[in-house]
Simulated scan of single mutants.
Amino acid sequence: MDRIIKFVVALFVIIAAASVASLVFAAQGTTPAATPSVANDSIVYYFYGQGCPHCAAIEPFMENMTKKYPDVDIRMLEVWYNQTNQQTYTQVNAAAGISSPQGVPEVVIGKTVLIGQLEIPDKLEGYLRAIEKKK
């Protein structure tokens, strides 16, 4: 339970910091350099938490997808203990139009968001095939 509370507090701090940064960039008429790359629909972001049982349940599936689709840029990022990955999680979700992410496991491809141990295995491979065909 402490992990969840710490994660929620950290996520709140990150969102607040991102909001302040957005206001600063907007006032300056610029955008942060990371924003264009996170909205890329050819990058597959898989966000998970170390110790999350739902994430652990689909870990073999995700590892299989990275092997089956080696030409697709699948980025597997742990967000409960890695602050840099938490920032990426916030930025990628914001670029997808999600202001309050629902948690992990989560896959984001451009503006497409898949959440949970049922939806990700059910739908992800179709998106990976489509990305692979574009290459």
Rank of each mutant, 00 (worst) to 15 (best):
G49L: 04
I98D: 04
E63S: 11
K135R: 10
E59W: 08
L77V: 07
Q83F: 01
F7E: 03
A94W: 15
F7S: 12
L128I: 06
N93G: 09
G49R: 03
R75Q: 15
L23F: 14
A18V: 15
I115N: 10
Y45R: 02
G110C: 12
I109M: 03
E78Q: 09
G116N: 10
K135F: 07
Y89S: 15
I4K: 15
G116V: 13
P53C: 03
S99W: 15
V8C: 10
E119V: 05
I109T: 13
A18G: 15
A57L: 11
D41R: 08
Q87A: 14
E106P: 06
S22D: 14
G126A: 07
P60H: 00
Q50N: 07
D2F: 10
G126I: 07
A34R: 13
V113C: 02
M65F: 03
T66Y: 03
P70C: 09
A16R: 06
A26Y: 09
H54D: 14
L128E: 03
Y46I: 04
Q117R: 13
I120W: 00
F47T: 11
T35G: 02
V108P: 11
R129T: 10
V108R: 08
K111W: 05
E106T: 15
F25E: 08
L118S: 10
A56V: 02
A57E: 13
T35C: 10
S100C: 12
K133R: 10
M1A: 14
P101D: 04
R3A: 12
A39K: 06
N82T: 07
L23R: 12
E119T: 08
C55Y: 02
I115Q: 07
E59L: 05
G110W: 10
A16M: 11
M76P: 02
D73H: 01
K111G: 05
E132G: 08
V92T: 14
G97D: 04
N64V: 05
V72S: 07
I43V: 05
S42K: 11
S99G: 14
N82D: 04
